[in-house]
Design a protein around this nucleic acid. Structure first.
Length: 490
RNA sequence: GGGCCGUUAGCUCAAUUGGCAGAGCAACUGACUCUUAAUCAGUAGGUUAGUGGUUCGAUUCCACUACGGCUCACCA
């Protein structure tokens, strides 16, 4: 396991300790960060640099170019680097030997005067330096970087050190989340946190992770969605709430699925699903703007145009648009089932018309929806928490947003009729009894909340990971999650 | 879970038909006071992911296992 280089570095560490050097001192006083140096002194000429006197800064040693009695090196800190110049003449024999014994990856603090090299590079003429943290393992190689995907994901810190574009993705991720908060806060939304551990996992159709609380001696589930708690808050009088946090779903992993993933859910009282669509358009435009990207963003071979308004299509029209299927085929359970079977879609005996139509949509249309498209009017059968369309109770006031063939958001007018909600849950319970492990459970506590009265409300969920994928042109969810779930190492 | 592909030095990659396992960077020794992929000379570093099989001989062919990638299924 231990390679030669690790052994050598450990020996060096012991040697340093024997010489009375603390290889992991608690502190180092620096006058500037590396970034400060570039910002404050880059424009100054030799004369102005001289009057700055001695400065000090610290960072990780990333390159060394030794020339016998002098050495050039770079230290790196927080995305910036600065060249340092260490000389025997200046440091003395003992200290210069110490410098030459440093390894790439060591953290050091250096002090000295600034000057410019012949190539005009801002450089510290090292008057003194201190070891701040000894590195015992060699870092990935400096110009091929780290490519092995397994190592990149398992040891993300190496990926971040070796691959600047990876750093950028996670900086962009942070900025996106920040923009969303700005956008919603500015619109009067209250950020809240609701339980991750729930006695009844609701708000989505998915298999949950189970856990056990010892002191309470009760089974708990990691949440699959925050939805039912956020709606309790609407009942409680917070009329605009949102939460950005993790959901957990006990399902397969793929390029688009990680068992824990981040979701934005926001709820607005006195709004309906129609009003959510322009809000969504504005939110994504706001994000694009704050990233300085403009509304046409590259994704693989596509250019995604976020300019509002985006296309709106009912689920039925989407199927008709992208397949030779006829409207009548989608209105009769028998015909729809035979169409689905003809497409090779696996059905269960219990699947009704709504479920079959939804599966046909996913099969024939979903992947075609490259440019932003709102698919509206889903069947009530697959939407147990959405309010039905008044004129047609088999459909609900709901949309899903598709971009790049992937579902990115899901929004609807919230069902606030407690009796109807109870009937919908009962239908779910029946499906569950019939073997659908993802069907929802009865949540009496939630129904009780609705019985106190919830105003007409619209709510929406947006998958943050997928949103980050879109804005960073990333084609695997693992590229936008710092520590994606991996199988345990053999 | 199924199918396909991959795993060689710390990192990035080679290895002809099955015939001595190699390079660059990193490391070590030495030279070198303006380099920046520093340069020059030399040295060391391998259970070729693991186990088994075929063969005179396996990084190479076969089987199984582990891990990863793509893809299908499931899902968001």
């Amino acid at each position: 396991m231990e390679n030669e280089q690790v052994i050598q570095r450990c020996e060096k560490l012991e040697q340093l300790k024997n010489q009375g050097v603390d290889p992991y001192p608690a502190r180092y006083k620096r006058t500037h960060s590396v970034a400060d140096l570039a910002a404050k002194f880059n424009g100054l000429d030799e004369e102005k640099l001289r009057i700055q006197g001695t400065i000090s800064c610290a960072g990780r040693l990333i390159t060394v170019r030794g020339h016998g009695k002098s050495s050039f090196a770079h230290i790196y800190s927080n995305n910036h680097k600065i060249q340092i110049y260490a000389r025997l003449e200046k440091l003395g024999a003992e200290k210069y030997e110490f410098f030459k014994g440093l390894d790439l990856g060591d953290f050091i603090g250096v002090s000295g005067a600034l000057f410019r090299t012949r190539t005009d590079e801002l450089t510290i003429d090292v008057g003194d330096f201190a070891l701040l943290s000894k590195s015992l393992r060699p870092l990935p190689e400096k110009w091929h970087g780290l490519k092995d995907t397994e190592t990149r994901y398992r040891q993300r810190y190496l990926d971040l050190l070796a691959n600047p574009e990876v750093r950028r993705i996670f900086q962009t991720r942070s900025r996106i989340v920040q923009s969303i908060r700005e956008f919603l806060n500015d619109d009067g939304f209250l950020e809240v946190e609701t339980p991750m551990m729930q006695p009844i996992p609701g708000g989505a159709t998915a298999r949950p992770f189970m856990t056990h609380h010892n002191a309470l001696d009760m089974e708990l589930y990691l949440r699959i969605a925050p939805e039912l708690y956020l709606k309790r808050l609407i009942v409680g009088g917070f009329e605009r709430v949102y939460e950005i946090n993790r959901n957990f779903r006990n399902e397969g992993l793929s390029r688009e699925h990680n068992p824990e993933f981040t979701m934005l859910e926001f709820y607005q009282a006195y709004a309906d699903f129609q009003q959510l669509m322009p809000i969504t358009e504005r939110m994504l435009a706001y994000i694009a703007e704050s990233l300085g990207m403009g509304l046409k963003i590259p994704f693989g071979t596509h250019t995604i145009d976020l300019t509002p308004p985006w296309q709106r299509l009912t689920i039925t029209d989407a199927i008709l648009n992208f397949s030779p299927i006829k409207k009548e085929d989608l209105e009769d359970l028998g015909r729809a089932r035979s169409i689905a079977e003809g497409l090779g879609i696996p059905l269960t005996a219990a699947d009704g018309l709504g479920k079959v139509v939804t599966k046909i949509f996913e099969q024939v249309a979903e992947a075609q929806l490259i440019q932003p498209t709102f698919i509206t009017h889903f069947p009530t059968e697959v939407s147990p928490l959405s309010k039905a369309v008044a004129e047609n109770p088999s459909l609900v006031e709901r949309f899903e947003l598709f971009i790049c063939g992937r579902e990115l958001a899901n929004g609807f007018s919230e069902l606030n009729d407690p009796q109807e909600q109870r009937r919908r849950f009962e239908a779910q319970v029946a499906e569950r009894a019939a073997g659908d492990e993802e069907a929802q459970m009865m949540d009496e506590d939630f129904i009780q909340a609705l019985e106190y009265g919830m105003p007409p409300t619209a709510g929406e969920g947006i998958g943050i990971d997928r949103l980050v994928m879109l804005f960073t042109d990333s084609h695997s969810i693992r590229e936008v999650i710092l520590f994606p779930q991996m199988r345990k190492q053999g």
